[in-house]
């Protein structure tokens, strides 16, 4: 029942306002602050778009990995403890996949232009597709 445009669309418009309309008019320091604000708005928009899905998927992975139900925060704390005590490591079935997926999902929201995120995605895409012969 909420009307269009939705929150993420409005945030995109605010980000545009900051970057394209205001930043050119501002002093160097104020322009820097405006860019930080625009980056923050873009992050919030991505969180609204993807946040619920990635947390739901992380919860399902954790429940499978630890073999019990529970809240996301509690299961993450248990996983942390078991890794720290050496009960689970990168050779444990499902653990590396879970940590990679969780980390990449966070990066999709927090910092999708980060160079090593882009490179990790490229490397994973390369592994999933048959190599082309050049």
């Amino acid at each position: 029942m909420l009307d269009q445009p939705r929150g993420t669309d409005i945030l995109t418009a605010v980000s545009w306002l900051l970057r394209e309309t205001l930043m050119p008019l501002l002093s160097a320091n104020a322009a820097f602050q405006a860019r930080v604000a625009a980056n923050a708005i873009d992050l919030v928009a991505r969180e609204i778009s993807f946040g619920e899905t990635v947390e739901r998927e992380a919860l399902a992975r954790l429940q499978a990995l630890l073999g019990r139900d529970g809240a996301l925060e509690d299961l993450e704390a248990e996983l942390s403890g078991r890794i720290r005590r050496g009960e689970l490591d990168l050779q444990s079935p499902g653990l590396a996949d879970h940590l990679w997926q969780t980390t990449l999902d966070k990066m999709k929201i927090d910092q999708p232009t980060y160079a090593s995120y882009r490179r990790t995605l490229e490397a994973r895409a390369g592994q999933q597709q048959p190599q082309k012969e050049d």
Partner: peptide, 8 residues
């Protein structure tokens, strides 16, 4: 705040 990657 638990961070499994930090524990790893």
């Amino acid at each position: 705040v638990a961070r499994p990657v930090f524990d790893l």
